[in-house]
Design a protein around this nucleic acid. Sequence first.
DNA 1: TATGAAAGACCGCTCCC
DNA 2: GGGAGCGGTCTTTCATA
Lengths: 152, 152
Amino acid sequence: MQNYEIDNLDKSILEALTENARIPYAELAKKLAVSAGTIHVRVEKMKNAGIIEGTKVSINAKNLGFDVCCFIGINLKNAKDYPETIKKLEAIEEVVEAYYTTGNYSIFIKTMTRSIDHLQMLLINKIQTIEEIQSTETLISLQNPINRDVLP
Amino acid sequence: MQNYEIDNLDKSILEALTENARIPYAELAKKLAVSAGTIHVRVEKMKNAGIIEGTKVSINAKNLGFDVCCFIGINLKNAKDYPETIKKLEAIEEVVEAYYTTGNYSIFIKTMTRSIDHLQMLLINKIQTIEEIQSTETLISLQNPINRDVLP
DNA sequence: TATGAAAGACCGCTCCC
DNA sequence: GGGAGCGGTCTTTCATA
């Protein structure tokens, strides 16, 4: 199911669908000069290959009141506590992404909060109370100048 | 256009659309026990309020061959070179996200590459040749145990 | 002002070429 | 990969509370 080689048509479909996942297949077909049936076949193929996982709305978090995006590098007391820590982080709704990384930190997370106060509360009352965590480093995102979702 | 307060119905719509943006409005209406017209009105309202930015397919980068996800913290020689550096980073297709942050790094970027070799090439031949950059720190993501797209 | 119902146009899915 | 048919969906309008 993996490593299916996509051709230019597949690529064009992905690009179009990345801009607007709700575009009618018929319109897409016209734009790419193929038939609607073909689009359908290709999309199904990419779904089966696990390339297309699904469709999502992109929500502007800022306009919903979540103004503060922040990255937090976490160091654990013991590396073996990783699974337990992830479980605890998962229970915190402000944690939107988590990565297990090599380098300076054991775990690296991204958080979305409504304000700096909210972030501070999150850090003090939720994250730093996790006993497996030794220390944290906070990187507040002031700007997000690049945010791509298309791959070459 | 901002700070429009969403109610429970809007929230349910967003949640459903986040799981599957292509769900028929009629089905969504049935699930939420309202009429299809209402769904349509609400979605339009949230689009106008800038809450819904659009719809996207979620692509599994791994199945496309992009196996290595990596974060790179960048320090600049001079803080004022930020805009110029962003411009140069933007031209690098492997750079999928960039943040201007407070804390340890000036700029923080996320990259997607096909392999460790590819990552190494990216670092040496592309990123570290940007003259405004003083130093970089690389955090290779080994796992991505949390990846939410729903907000509370 | 926001919701609900219905009608027509449009689209997606499936088959066969 | 292309083309046509049927079943279903989206959108719009109008009436209502």
